[in-house]
């Protein structure tokens, strides 16, 4: 008898937990649904009462056209894609090189340098924003792709991540290749990189997302519209057309699609990589 009672109570508790979780989950994606819904509305329905989730006239494609007509959105999109991809490629290559160096080589001063690398992880970006801007100004890199890509191209987090992973890999493959007379750089490209694939995937996903979403740095160094990234373009768009919410939401949706796609394809890795990053903004 008590058995049944305990079971019933447990079921009710479990049901309650699930209901709360689902409601919370709904609340969590409600702003996204709101964006989606607004993006499909004509202006007249954006300012209508009561709230209509599904518009009477579906106007997404007109909104899309309007967005591309009012702002050089294609340029922004291309810039963001290019900067994010190039940045990710550089990050993956150079972080793995450094991580490999820390994990599998011995030379004087290695440990001190590694501690310094870890130390830079603690420097908040905003603390060095102004002097970094001045450095880039001195290099004549403002309003350029180089300026957008290079300053963030090697992260101590990436070095740390790849080093930890490579430490756990056996050195036999590397030694064997060395005995066979394989050059060191070739060993890196043909043996180390393929072996490190899982961690490289994690690093790429995280880096791409951070680059794609970056706002403060482009805001500081770019004022030529030609080099605006999507975040920057969106911010400027909202400054000029602050009440055209259906267009703003359409543009926001476009800006979110790449990250969403990656998220849904690599969900498990994504969640893990963000958890491991700890200090993500």
């Amino acid at each position: 008898m008590t058995h049944v009672l305990v079971n019933v109570r447990r079921r009710v508790a479990s049901l309650g937990v699930h209901i709360i979780l689902y409601l919370g989950g709904l609340f969590s994606i409600l702003p996204l649904l709101w964006m989606l819904s607004t993006a499909t509305k004509p202006a007249s329905e954006v300012f209508s009462f009561p709230i209509r989730w599904i518009p009477e006239t579906f106007q997404f494609f007109d909104n899309l056209q309007a967005v591309f007509k009012t702002v050089p959105f294609a340029t922004y999109y291309f810039n963001s894609l290019f900067v994010s991809l190039a940045g990710t490629a550089l990050t993956v290559l150079f972080c793995t090189l450094a991580g490999y160096s820390f994990a599998k080589f011995d030379y004087p001063g290695k440990n001190i340098i590694f501690v310094l690398v870890l130390g830079t992880m603690m420097i908040p970006f905003q603390a060095i924003l102004i002097p970094l801007f001045l450095t880039v100004l001195k290099f004549n890199w403002t309003n350029s792709y180089v300026g957008l890509i290079v300053p963030g191209a090697i992260t101590s987090f990436g070095i740390f991540l790849t080093r930890q992973y490579l430490l756990s890999l056996p050195s036999e493959f590397i030694d064997a290749a060395r005995v066979d007379g394989c050059g060191e750089f070739r060993i890196f490209l043909t043996i180390v990189m393929p072996l490190a694939k899982p961690v490289l995937a994690t690093l790429s996903i995280l880096t791409f997302m951070n680059n794609w979403n970056d706002y403060l740095w482009p805001l500081v160094i770019i004022n030529n519209p030609r080099y605006r990234t999507i975040s920057l373009g969106l911010a400027m768009f909202q400054g000029e057309y602050s009440t055209q919410f259906n267009l703003l939401m359409t543009a926001s949706l476009l800006a979110t699609i790449p990250v969403l796609l990656i998220f849904f394809v690599f969900q498990k890795q994504f969640v893990q990589s963000m958890m491991s990053s700890g200090l993500k903004g």
Binding site: S28, I29, P31, M35, M209, N213, Y215, L234, Q238
Partner: peptide
């Protein structure tokens, strides 16, 4: 569902 907001751009979030 709970995780999606944390991958979005802060600019998009601010606009929404």
């Amino acid at each position: 569902a709970y995780f999606v907001p944390s991958i979005m751009s802060t600019v998009v979030i601010a606009i929404i």
